[in-house]
Design a protein around this nucleic acid. Structure first.
Length: 563
RNA sequence: GCACCAGUAGCUCAGUGGAUAGAGCAAUGGCCUCCGGAGCCAUGUGCGGAGGUUCGAUUCCUCUCUGGUGCACCA
């Protein structure tokens, strides 16, 4: 269609009927919102008919959209105007009927999402928060589109770092200290190890040796490892509970440890495995990539091996159409390598079935987060701080509010989640307390406040029930029209967000709805004498309330009825 | 050195070929005896730079500058 329009503009089409022009323009039966003034195409100077004449012909040729009122030629553009009342009616009716952007496009399809994946023996910090929140939002979004989703928490519970930790524990730790301080003590040991390793290179080799023992099933090594893992998981669960996030599978890397031999055999059988410096690799020169390391020179596995095992396990057990990996952008090369190896093993589905969903780096006061230097903020602290700040505000503004603690949790957590989901994933984030704790403007609490306001309005209307059978002629003012236009974008927004793996699109939509509603609220009194006006406006309020709740839930955020 | 990602208003960011590039924050000034003021309204010298493709480029291509990240025995 686009090319035909270009031909038309370029004057290369000389005989065309109004019907054909109308067909070219393809006014959708339910136009995208924003079509009141519809920028259709530019009429170039080279066009051999006057724009006005063409506008007139198109107008005569279009009869398909019942609420199309008028076409005007403005400058070099054609603008389409619709009958507002009919337009509003069609949109409101379809919103009340179609369950607000739900869809069945994913019916019968499974998506695996690999996200959160914190490392055992390390604290859950602000960086892990991003993958957790983004992954959870993608889960909600895909579910809304009818997909079956497997939520997989690929815990970092296997690898050389545990060998190092065992060395550190044996050298400088004690059972009492670990029991007393938990993850904090494990962290201390880990940091200590790296400090000492700078002086004594042999420590690294000892760590590797202990990991090799783990892979060989050494009981002592495994029992220490299991103990550390249990301590860490208990700690992670506290944060997940606060966030209200759950998983279908908490299957860490260790889950796949017995499947790596099979992976290595498959690669070898395919003739892809080559030896290099004592290690075994898949050469990827042909694809302009560094080689993918499969087996280390001491015979133990590496994360790529385990990721490969995980891919095959998931394909066989969940038969996914897509498997998404929500991890930092710094792992881009790693996933490109792993996906390429899967493909080279004769799996065409790897090409668009395996998707890395990268996100930008979180930094703190301009510097990279680092456990070792103490430049770090823990997820739990952020959430608790936000909740306590919200609590203060509630005490100040609404001290009589019931369930204050629960409301403060929803709003505080919502503020943190929303803040993290408001921009494109790829943007680096510089963590700042004052930005996070500002709850005005484009924030979660602003949207939640708008929701509570809707709830409050509806509570004040006795005997109101939403209905499509209302007088639409009272909703033709600018504020109402703008509101309806915004609301009916919902379905498209959810689809776009899924297609681009970008929850921020939903977050921005929620803010846009809240903004346009607050303007509507400012311009129109809802609880008025005239029943027709009251019912019509209240119906819009009802739709706004439903849409906001729905959109926020796609981000993993709850909306309290009062705040 | 090579590769990938980012660069839009003082700050944080939307804008995946179309009209006069939009929000929020911060700042200043306003908001009716009325449904929640965490709200609404008003104030803006901005697309890093240079070429190219196009009727039309913030958007696509090339080069360049700046920042970030990655480049096998960590994950």
């Amino acid at each position: 269609m686009k090319n035909k329009i270009i031909d038309l503009i370029a004057g290369q089409v000389t005989d065309i009927t109004p019907e054909e022009i109308a067909a070219l323009i393809e006014i959708p039966p339910k136009p995208e919102l924003g079509d009141f003034a519809f920028p259709c195409f530019r009429l170039a100077k080279t066009m051999h008919k006057a724009p006005q004449a063409i506008a007139a012909e198109i107008k005569d040729g279009i009869g398909r959209v019942d609420f199309l009122d008028e076409i005007k030629c403005e400058g070099a553009y054609l603008n389409f105007f619709v009958n507002k009342e009919q337009f509003i009616a069609s949109q409101v009716q379809s919103m009340l009927k179609d369950n607000y952007g739900s869809s069945a496009e994913g019916e019968g399809k499974t998506i695996c999402i690999d996200y959160s994946s914190p490392n055992v023996a390390k604290n859950f910090h602000v960086g892990h928060l991003r993958t957790t929140i983004i992954g959870n939002a993608l889960y909600k979004i895909y579910s809304k589109l009818g997909y079956h989703v497997e939520r997989i928490n690929h815990i970092g519970d296997w690898g050389t770092q545990f060998g190092k930790l065992i060395v550190a524990y044996k050298a400088w730790g004690s059972e009492e200290a670990v029991k007393k301080d938990g993850v904090a003590e494990l962290m201390r040991l880990y940091v200590k190890f790296h400090e000492e390793a700078e002086k004594d290179e042999n420590l690294i080799n000892e760590g590797r040796a202990w990991f090799a023992k783990m892979e060989q099933g050494d009981p002592e090594a495994l029992s220490i490892w299991q103990w550390f893992k249990d301590i860490s998981l208990a700690e992670f669960m506290k944060t997940y509970k606060l966030l209200g996030i759950e998983f279908d599978h908490i299957t860490g890397e260790s889950f796949y440890r017995n499947m790596t031999d099979d992976v290595i055999a498959r690669i070898e059988k395919a003739g892809l495995l080559t030896e290099s410096d004592g290690a075994k690799i898949v050469n990827l020169d042909e694809y302009d990539m560094a080689p993918c390391l499969i087996v280390k020179n001491d015979g133990s596995s590496i994360y790529a091996t385990r990721d490969l095992a995980a891919v095959f396990y998931r394909k066989e057990n969940y038969n996914f159409t897509k498997c998404l990996y929500v991890t930092g952008q710094e792992q881009k090369l790693h996933f490109a390598q792993v996906f390429k190896v899967v493909e080279l093993l004769g799996n065409d589905w790897a090409k668009d079935g395996l998707v890395h969903i990268p996100y930008g780096l979180v930094s703190l006061s301009g510097e990279k987060l680092s456990t070792r230097s103490g430049n770090i903020i823990y997820a739990e602290d952020i959430l608790l701080e936000a909740i306590s700040k919200i609590k203060e505000i509630i005490e100040e503004k609404n001290p009589g509010l019931p369930d204050k603690d629960e409301v403060a949790r929803k709003v505080g957590v919502g503020a943190v989640l929303f803040n993290d989901l408001y921009n494109q994933r790829i943007k680096d984030v510089s963590f700042k307390w004052d930005k996070l704790l500002n709850f005005n403007g484009e924030t979660g609490p602003y949207v939640q406040y708008t929701y509570a306001r809707c709830a409050s309005i509806l509570r004040g209307l006795e005997g109101f029930t939403p209905s499509a059978d209302i007088d639409y002629s009272v909703l033709t003012d600018d504020a109402s029209v703008d509101l309806v236009k915004e609301l009916s974008r919902f379905g498209k927004v959810v689809q776009d967000a899924a297609e681009r793996y970008e929850p921020f699109m939903v977050a921005r939509f929620a803010v846009a709805v809240a903004q346009v509603f607050n303007k509507f609220y400012d311009a129109n009194r809802i609880n008025v004498e005239d029943e027709k006006v009251k019912t019509a406006r209240a119906t819009l309020v009802y739709i706004v309330k439903t849409v906001i709740k729905d959109a926020m839930s796609l981000l993993g955020i709850e909306c309290p009825e009062q705040m």
